[in-house]
Amino acid sequence: MVIKRVDEKGELIVETKTGDIQVDYHTAPASLEVAVQNTKGDTTVNLANLTTTKKTDEEVNGTIGAGENSMHIKSYSGSIGIK
């Protein structure tokens, strides 16, 4: 699943049992809460100014700015890429 030209406003929730997830932001987020979980697969989160609170092979959590908007991504089997 590829989601392109995403706007950071509001809440973005994406979950898949099997398959890759790619999220491409239109412009760099300025105020975003990030929560990414991946049970099996590669995870790459490449967002400017992300302050991570947790970063493991299976989970990436953090905030950009005040975290007024949110992104929750979850995959049970597949790669996740966020930029």
Rank of each mutant, 00 (worst) to 15 (best):
T56I: 01
N61I: 02
T39M: 03
L47H: 08
H26N: 15
E33Q: 09
T39N: 04
N38C: 05
K55P: 02
V36I: 12
T63S: 11
A28V: 14
N38Y: 02
G67Q: 06
T63L: 09
A66I: 03
G65A: 10
K55G: 02
L50H: 13
G65S: 15
E33F: 12
T43G: 02
E33I: 06
P29G: 15
A35S: 08
S31E: 10
G41D: 06
V36S: 04
G67M: 06
N49L: 14
H26M: 12
G67F: 07
L50Q: 07
K55F: 01
T52H: 07
S31T: 14
V60P: 07
N49I: 08
G62A: 11
L32W: 11
G62M: 12
V45T: 06
P29A: 09
T56F: 00
T27Q: 14
D42W: 00
K54H: 03
I64Q: 13
Q37W: 01
T52S: 15
T51M: 11
N46M: 10
A28K: 10
T63V: 14
H26K: 13
N61S: 07
I64C: 13
G62I: 08
V36G: 04
I64F: 13
T51K: 14
E59I: 02
N49T: 10
A30P: 12
T43H: 02
A30R: 14
G67L: 07
N49G: 09
T56N: 00
V45L: 04
T63Y: 11
A30H: 10
S31N: 12
H26I: 09
K54N: 05
T56G: 00
K55L: 03
N38S: 07
S31D: 10
T27C: 11
S31Q: 12
A35W: 05
A28E: 14
Q37M: 03
N61Q: 09
E59Y: 01
G41S: 06
A30T: 14
V60E: 04
H26Y: 12
K40C: 00
H26S: 10
T56D: 01
P29D: 11
N49V: 11
V36E: 05
T43A: 01
E58K: 05
